[in-house]
Design a protein around this nucleic acid. Sequence first.
DNA 1: TTGAAATATGAATCAGTATTCATGTTTTAT
DNA 2: ATAAAACATGAATACTGATTCATATTTCAA
Lengths: 196, 196
Amino acid sequence: MSTNAYPRTSRGVARREQILRAAEAMIGAQGFSAASIADITRHAKTALGTFYIYFSSKEDVFRELVLEMGQLTRAVITQAVAGAPNRLEAERAGLKAFLRFVVERPSLYRIVEEARFIDAEAYKAYFTSFAKAYAAQLNDAAAAGELRPGDAEVRAWALMGIAKTLGERYVLWDDTSDIDHVVDEAFSMIRDGLAP
Amino acid sequence: MSTNAYPRTSRGVARREQILRAAEAMIGAQGFSAASIADITRHAKTALGTFYIYFSSKEDVFRELVLEMGQLTRAVITQAVAGAPNRLEAERAGLKAFLRFVVERPSLYRIVEEARFIDAEAYKAYFTSFAKAYAAQLNDAAAAGELRPGDAEVRAWALMGIAKTLGERYVLWDDTSDIDHVVDEAFSMIRDGLAP
DNA sequence: TTGAAATATGAATCAGTATTCATGTTTTAT
DNA sequence: ATAAAACATGAATACTGATTCATATTTCAA
C-alpha cells in the first residue's frame, strides 16, 4: 500500500506503535543504514510487508522519530523549568532534565543527532525552532535584569551545545550515576557566565 | 590488491593524495553512504579500481580522514593558542581559530561528526584524547590561579560543546562573515564563567 | 450474519554499489 | 636497455537490502 495514513482500527494503531518502537530500538542501536527494515519488523514481531502499510519508507519512520524526539524534549524541559524561581535556576533545572531524558531515551537522542546526515532539513528545523524559543526566554530574562545583557541567540546555541555534548559524554558513553555532579559543575560555569 | 600500504613512487604518492582529497570532498558533501567509490574516483579523475590500491575499503579512507582532521585541528588550535598571555585569552583564541578552521575545511568537520555513526571508536578516541589534553591545560591554569577552581574535565567537554555547536550553526549553516561577533559573545560568557 | 474495508504476510523483484580481478602501462633499479 | 615491481584500468562479480505485490486473514458497520 505504501501509505502512512493513520490506521483506522485499534489493531492498526497498536501495530503502528509496535513498529515505531522497534524502529527506535533498531535505528537507535545500529544506526540508520545498518538497521534494516527486516530488523525492524523482526523486532516488532510482524511481517516485513507490514512496515509499508504504516510507513512509506525508512526515511519516513526516521522523520517521525525525529519529530517525536523534538516534542518530547520540549515537553520534558518545559515541565522541568516551569517551577524555577528565576532564569538561572531554570537553566540548572533544564540541563538536569535534559540529561535525565537522555538516560531514559538514549536511542532517540542518537536518532536526532544522526538526522543531520539523513534528513538535514528536519534536523535543522528542530534545532532552529528550539533555539528560537530558547533565545526568546533568555532575552526576556535579560530584559528583566535576571541575566547580564548579551546576544541571546549566541547564548542559546552555546548552552544547547553544552547540553548536547555533556549528554553524549556523560550519559551515552559513560552511564555515570553522578549526573548531579556534572550538572553542578557545568551550571556553576554557566551561572557565573550569565549572572548579572 | 586491496592494501593500503604506503606508495613507493611519487606518482603513487600523488594519486593517493588525489583520492584522499576527492573522498574528503564527496563524503563531506554527500555523506558517507551517499558518496560512492565511483563518485570519489570520478572526482579524482582516476579509475574505480585504483581506489583499492591505496585504501582497503570505504571505511578505511573515512578513518584516515578522521585522523587527519584530528591532527589538523590540534595543530591549528595549538598554534593559535601559543601566544596567548593567559588561559582566558587562550580560550578566546582557540575558539576563534576553531571557527576559522571550520570555514576553511567544512567537509572535514562534517566527516568527524559523521564518524560517530560510521566508526564510533575513532570518533570517541578523537574527542576523548582531545578532551584529556584540554582538561590538563584547564587544570594547570586553575592551579596557577588563572581560573576559578572546578572540575576541569566537565569544563573541557562543555567548552568543546560550545565550539562544536557554534561551528555548526554559524559556519556550516550560516556562512556569517561575523565570526568575531559570535566569538566575542560566546567568550564573554565563558570568561565570566571561568574567571577567578 | 455478511461483505467491504482494513490489515497481514513473505516470497519475489529490482536496483545500487562495494569489491575483485585479469589485463595493460609506467616506473625504477641494475 | 631491460626485467621486475608498482601502479592503472574498468568490466564483471557478488551481495545486500529496500520496496512491491498477489494472496490471505481480520475487523467492523449495516
